[in-house]
Design a protein around this nucleic acid. Structure first.
Lengths: 226, 226
DNA sequence: CAACCACTTAAGGATTGTATAAGTCGGTCT
DNA sequence: AGACCGACTTATACAATCCTTAAGTGGTTG
């Protein structure tokens, strides 16, 4: 899973970008200041940095130089308007791509994908395996003992999420928040239903379960039965 | 087929060049300003840029630097004056070839061909194969079980894009962005229609599909049926 | 054993995908 | 120039699939 550091002072934009990329499955760290950004880069060794050039506490070009001094991580700069000199300067300083605000979500996603692919490996690929269960996000295919499972979109997302957290107990509320994208409302009943369907397709029942185990009063976990 | 970005402010010349190259089978994007040009280069990752040095909104040399910062795409500069120093300077700055205005259509075609050949062939990627399906970008020919398919331009581009990502699910929005080159608006219905046509020409239907499989709620993928 | 939580099944409405037809546009042929 | 043609887009009707709500059953805890 690729990780991305976002350095952007405007809260609205920062949260929007973070949300969008998190939805795409990236590990996101979003900070509002240059110093925190630099720290995140040094500590986290991210796969990509998205940098707003209009930070209040430090000139964007300066920050880029500092990041470049410690890391070869690709950088996408976000610049407020197309100020030509600004763009020239930043691209020369070592940015890998740029976004002119206001930019669309699609633009953002496309650039991020493009840069990560260019640099080598989209990161979020690589099939997960739990026992004899295989979950491949790229082809959106799940197999049990080599036989393909026919899963609905939600079922697949659910299985994938649990597979990413193999062995870890996850509450239904968290599943609602992460898989259903509803942090607040929403009925946990829905999760129950989908879990039930998943179990059925995995050839299990709640009583006799190999992979999908419920932890009473807490949640569920996907375990390796071997 | 190779794609070319033309950056030229004079409408007459811009349209002429675009027309000529489009007739040659190139994918052409023609824009009048430096900024749009830069955007096209970044978005489209073209195989060649033809750049007028006398743009009103930005000095040509500056723009070249900017393009060089984001891409190694070959650049042919078109310059009005026949000044030796000028030409030397631009070539040193990273241009691959130059045209002195006014230039003939033959000149133009010859230079474009020469540069593309020098850089490594128009269709740099060899033919793709997915099962018994063959997609050759260079000749722009697709074959199924050896029999040639009669595809429209968009159909071919679509098939090619999917073949490049064999096995990977691609959303319609992404197809709109990548194949149709319009990241924002645009109706996904259009993609549906083209997919339907592609299926028909592949001898499939959505219900019974060997190659082109739809993943409900997510997108489509081209798979190897063997 | 009572209260609570979890599981399963069923059914409707909502969403998404397919296919066909009709409308646009640009280019070509006579 | 006018009619035609192919490619693309938009519109529409229809079909498949999915998600949620609801209701009843079964299991666990204190």
């Amino acid at each position: 899973m690729a990780s991305v550091v976002i350095i952007e002072d405007e809260q609205r934009i920062r949260e929007l970008v973070a949300r969008v990329l998190a939805d795409q499955g990236y590990d996101v760290i979003a900070v509002p200041t240059a110093m925190e950004g630099l720290q995140s880069v040094v500590n986290g060794t991210p796969d990509l940095v998205i940098l707003d050039m209009g930070l209040p506490d430090l000139d964007g070009a300066e920050l880029m130089k500092m990041i470049r001094a410690v890391s070869k991580v690709p950088i996408i700069v976000a610049t407020a308007r197309n100020d030509d000199r600004d763009i020239v300067r930043t691209l020369n300083a070592g940015a890998d791509d740029y976004l002119v605000k206001p930019f669309s979500v699609d633009q953002l996603e496309a650039r991020v994908r493009a840069v990560l692919r260019r640099v080598g490996g989209d990161g979020r690929t690589g099939p997960l395996t739990v026992g004899d269960l295989r979950v491949d996000a790229a082809s959106r295919e799940a197999r049990l003992d080599g036989a393909p499972l026919e899963l609905s979109p939600k079922e697949f997302d659910l299985l994938r999420f649990l597979a990413e957290r193999e062995g870890e107990v996850v509450s239904k509320r968290e599943l609602l928040a992460e898989v259903w994208r509803q942090p607040y409302g929403g009925s946990e009943k829905t999760v129950d239903v989908h879990l039930s369907w998943l179990r059925k397709k995995l050839g299990e029942s709640a009583a006799d379960s190999r992979y999908l185990q419920t932890v009473f009063g807490v949640g569920v976990k996907l375990v390796d039965p071997t």
